[in-house]
């Protein structure tokens, strides 16, 4: 089977330079994304998981060029995104959309829902007002909102309903790729399931591929075909969802899976909770960035950086002890 590559990311880096302090000659850059590579196939859902500060949202924004990358290459359907001019990029954004975590801060509070949903069409040159309104109505229906929401304002909607508006806006222009940045984290449990189901339905109906960013491993397992685990700006493990959850290899992945509170209390999991916090990305530990918290580290981990290597078909791990 030949699966089409939709998005190819090669050695993507995004370093932020902190503001120079008085009399300081130079300050260390914050390596938010520090050389990550992956491929997203057509029709696939790839999960990007990690703790806050690991750079997962920066990946999302850099991919869509909402912020400019430091270096690296991203090609979307064969087009090199970073070589495009601003206007060309804007045209291509039709094909790649984003859903944000907080639905309230991602819509204009002074505009009615109907207007918010017509905006993508207006921006991309559809001038027929009546047609646009009609399309906005169809979008409402597609995401399971009643037609009378058309004239309401964002504050009149609950978080779950407003996230549906965010999703409707993202699918308006029939994108090939949707980057979903923690789309259900701000929602209540009973609403999370509704929104996840909606995203799954749309995937089948509209043939969308997702890059799904989340810190919730339970949701990711449910939703994603493949999973990439990030730590301090790097991918430490990348594999099929099944491999990640059934035979995690990287000690960080294992710790993450162990830390999830389980509904069955007293299940037989060994409690090896990691000590300490995620290190400062401006001053990451030498060698493998995880060695400062790793329960199985060796001498070489403090000196050399492990590469992401394939240890089984489709299963990539960046850890010396698993190579």
């Amino acid at each position: 089977m030949n699966i089409e590559e939709l998005l190819v990311v090669r050695d993507l880096k995004k370093h932020f330079l902190p503001k120079k302090k008085f009399l300081e000659t130079s300050s260390a850059p914050i390596r938010a994304v520090d050389g990550i590579s992956f491929i997203l196939h057509k029709g696939e859902t790839l999960g990007l998981v990690g703790e806050s500060g690991c750079g997962k949202s920066t990946v999302a924004r850099t991919l869509l060029r909402l912020i400019e990358p430091t270096s690296g290459q991203v090609s979307f359907c064969g087009t090199d995104l970073f070589a495009l001019k601003e206007t060309e990029m804007r045209n291509l954004r039709k094909e790649m959309q984003i859903i944000f975590q907080d639905p309230y801060s991602s819509v204009n509070p002074g505009r009615r829902i109907g207007h918010i949903l017509q905006e993508p069409f207006e921006i991309h040159g559809f001038r027929n007002k009546r047609e646009n309104a009609e399309k906005a109505n169809q979008l409402l229906e597609q995401v399971g909102l009643a037609p009378d929401y058309f004239n309401r304002y964002p504050h009149e909607l609950s978080g779950g309903q407003l996230q549906r508006v965010g999703i409707a806006r993202a699918i308006a222009l029939n994108p090939k790729l949707i980057v979903a940045d923690e789309p259900v984290s701000a929602l209540d449990v009973s609403i999370q399931a509704q929104v996840i189901n909606l995203l799954l339905d749309l995937k089948d109906k509209l043939d969308i591929s997702y890059l799904f960013i989340s810190h919730d491993l339970g949701v990711v397992e449910y939703f994603c075909d493949r999973v990439a685990v990030m730590y301090l700006g790097k991918i430490v493990e990348l594999a099929d969802s099944e491999q990640i959850y059934n035979s995690p290899q990287h000690p960080y992945t294992i710790a993450l899976l162990n830390a999830i509170p389980s509904l069955e209390s007293g299940r037989s999991k060994q409690k090896v909770s990691l000590k300490g916090d995620i290190p400062n990305p401006a001053n990451p530990p030498k060698g493998c960035a995880f060695h400062s918290r790793c329960p199985i580290k060796e001498k070489q981990c403090e000196e050399k950086i492990p590469a992401l290597k394939e240890i089984a078909p489709g299963h990539h791990v960046a850890c010396f002890l698993k190579h």
Partner: peptide, 8 residues
């Protein structure tokens, strides 16, 4: 808090 910190 993050899951790992939550566990702690």
């Amino acid at each position: 808090l993050d899951v790992l910190i939550q566990a702690q």
